[in-house]
Amino acid sequence: MAAALAVAALLLGLVLAPGRTWAQFSDTATVGTGTFTGTLASPAALSCQTEGLGVRIGWATPTNRRFSVRVLQTNGSQVYDTTTTDNSILLTPTLLSAVLGARYTIEVRTTAGTAWQSPQASTRTFGVAALGLWLVC
């Protein structure tokens, strides 16, 4: 009885769920895309104007980005670094521990993601005057 049921089930299966095979037409359509590329632009030329005891360094573009800012002494040592999403930064003598006669260079790079930085930095030089109390462009 069991054998008969098994055979019946097999036959039913063959009819309903085809062990039958037949050729099936097919087609392949391929899409090639254009190119994906991207490079971070450097900030536009830096502007400088005095503001209180310090100087405000600004740049117009790009907007809505994140920027890495470094301030270096003339000997290349870094005295300050930060990141900002603004398009300007106010530097003060206190922030830089400025001393009379010192000159500094500010470097600004655009950043994106966790690792990208614009290949080129935009730079501007400024100095310290009047007993180290003021920054001047």
Partner: peptide, 29 residues
């Protein structure tokens, strides 16, 4: 299509195209 936020800086200026292949097969039954 996206560019992962953790993409290494070395990928700046990289270029890539994609190939998407769609294959259709006649439905059975």
């Amino acid at each position: 299509v996206g560019l992962d936020s953790a993409s290494a800086n070395a990928n700046q200026g990289a270029r890539g195209t994609l190939t998407l292949v769609l294959t259709s097969t006649q439905a059975v039954g």
